Amino acid sequence: MLNDNRVRIIIGHYGSGKTEFSVNYAINLAEKGKKVALADLDVVNPYFRSREKFKLLQSYGIEVESSYVEGSGTDLPSISAGILGPMQNESYDFVMDVGGDSMGARTLGRYHEYLVEGKYDMFCVVNANRPETQTVEGVIHHIQSIERTSRAKVTGLINNTHLLRHTTVEDVLKGQELCRQVSKELNIPIKYVSAIESVAKDLPKDLEGQIMPIKMIMREDWM
């Protein structure tokens, strides 16, 4: 993950685990001694937002930017101007958690002028157990609709195929095959294979992409 470009944009359909991955990814960077900022750009879906873990992220020294108005209990359909700081300041490792569909990606489009090709990565989180991304055609349609709206290019895939705490090795391997086919069609690599820690330890070591064990941070134990 240290070899990724400094600005990392994380996209993925609703239920893909995009935010779970983003939060774990940011924490991993912080644990490696990086100066990290995370932007919650999801102004469409009010549930399982990365900004909900503000205090946890702050405890790791991670700066959080979002559309939430502190003390109001509400969000605005816009993002704080503070996002431009870590976007332009090269001392930051910057993670951007973007809305789950092309409508949500419109927020990213406003920063197009700051996203220089070769200076950012945009990773698409794929969950092969979600209806919209169960097929190669579905994943490609999702990627292309995000790219059109955001005017940014996907540079890598993340296999995050899961059934929450009921995830099995077989689920992840099913998703890996789907990602392999999408990778071949679009000529973009599989960058990460993420799974809960109990599953990640049993995955084959020769999978394409870095295996990234993740903690269930966004969902409480009772969920």
Rank of each mutant, 00 (worst) to 15 (best):
A30W: 12
K34G: 05
G82W: 01
V43Q: 14
K32G: 12
P77Q: 04
S72H: 06
Y92F: 14
G85C: 06
F48H: 00
V23Y: 08
F94R: 04
P86H: 14
N89A: 10
E65C: 07
R49N: 06
M87L: 15
M96N: 07
E70N: 08
I79S: 03
T19Y: 04
V95S: 00
A81K: 12
E65W: 06
V69R: 09
D75G: 04
S59N: 08
G100R: 02
F21P: 00
D101Y: 04
A81W: 03
E90C: 01
S22P: 08
Y68D: 09
V23R: 08
Q88I: 09
K34S: 11
R49P: 04
R106G: 12
K32L: 15
S66K: 14
G82I: 03
R51K: 09
G82F: 08
S67N: 02
D101Q: 04
M87A: 09
L38C: 07
S59T: 09
K55C: 03
S80N: 12
T74V: 01
S66L: 15
S78Y: 07
N28R: 15
G33S: 09
G82K: 11
K53F: 06
P77E: 01
M87T: 07
A26Y: 14
Q88S: 14
G104P: 11
Q88D: 13
E31A: 05
Q58L: 09
D42T: 09
E20T: 13
V69I: 13
N45S: 11
N24T: 05
D42V: 07
L38R: 03
L41F: 15
L29Q: 05
M87Y: 09
R49K: 10
T74A: 04
S78F: 02
F94G: 04
Y25T: 07
F21L: 11
S66Y: 14
V98Q: 01
M96L: 15
G33M: 09
Y47H: 05
Y60I: 01
I27Q: 07
E52W: 04
P86D: 13
F54W: 09
D40W: 05
G100Q: 06
I27D: 05
R106V: 03
I27R: 06
I62D: 10
Q58G: 08
E70P: 03
N28C: 03
D93I: 09
I83A: 02
K55N: 13
I27K: 05
Y60V: 03
K34V: 02
P46D: 05
G85K: 15
I83Q: 01
G73E: 04
D97N: 11
A37K: 09
L41H: 10
Q58A: 13
S66W: 15
A30S: 15
K34A: 11
A105S: 15
L84Y: 01
A37E: 10
S66H: 12
Y60L: 00
E90L: 03
I79R: 00
D40K: 03
V95D: 00
S50T: 11
K32F: 12
E70A: 10
